[in-house]
C-alpha cells in the first residue's frame, strides 16, 4: 500500500517533468560518449600510412564474419594491408575487433546514419573506412 502511494506521487511528478524522448530528426541530442558507430581504420599521422598490417586477428575474432582482410608483402619482406572490407549488413557493432587489435589500428567512429537503398553500398572498402569524416562527435 505504501509502495502504491509512493508510486502515485512519482507518476504524478513525472507529468510535470521534461520528457526524455525527442522528435528525431527535428530535435537532436549529443551522441553519448563511447557510442559505437562504423569501424574506422586509423592512419599514422607522421607517415600518413594505414597502421593496420593485415594480421587478420579482427577477422578471426569477429563473431559475425563481417570483416575480410588480406595482406601483401612488399619488397624487403615488409607486410602491408592489401584489402580490408567490412559488411555493415552483418556487423553488430560489438567492438571486439577494436578490443583485440594488437596494433591499435582500428576504432569505432560516431557515424550512425547507415540506411541504404542498395545492399551493395553496405560493403565498405578500405578507402571508405579510412575517411575520418564520421569520427567527429556531433549531434545525434
Amino acid at each position: 500500500m505504501l509502495r502504491l502511494i509512493k508510486n502515485f506521487f512519482i507518476v504524478f511528478g513525472n507529468i510535470f517533468r521534461k520528457p526524455h524522448t525527442i522528435i528525431y530528426p527535428r530535435e537532436r541530442i549529443i551522441i553519448p560518449d563511447g557510442s559505437r558507430g562504423v569501424l574506422h581504420l586509423k592512419v599514422d599521422p607522421d607517415s600518413l600510412e594505414i597502421i593496420c598490417k593485415g594480421c587478420g586477428l579482427c577477422k578471426i575474432i569477429c563473431s559475425q564474419g563481417c570483416i575480410t582482410v588480406q595482406k601483401r608483402a612488399e619488397d624487403k619482406g615488409r607486410e602491408v594491408l592489401d584489402e580490408f572490407c567490412l559488411d555493415l549488413s552483418k556487423c553488430i557493432f560489438c567492438g571486439n575487433c577494436v578490443e583485440f587489435c594488437k596494433m591499435n589500428a582500428i576504432d569505432m567512429s560516431y557515424k550512425y546514419q547507415l540506411a541504404e537503398f542498395d545492399k551493395k553500398n553496405l560493403k565498405l572498402e578500405k578507402t571508405e573506412l579510412v575517411k575520418p569524416s564520421g569520427t567527429i562527435r556531433d549531434f545525434w
Binding site: 507518476v11 513525472n14 507529468i15 517533468r17 520528457p19 526524455h20 524522448t21 525527442i22 522528435i23
Partner: peptide, 13 residues
C-alpha cells in the same frame, strides 16, 4: 498524452 508523460515520454505528436 498523460500515460506518455507519466512514462517521461512525449506521446503521440
Amino acid at each position: 498524452k498523460l500515460t506518455a508523460r507519466m512514462d517521461l515520454r512525449r506521446g503521440y505528436k
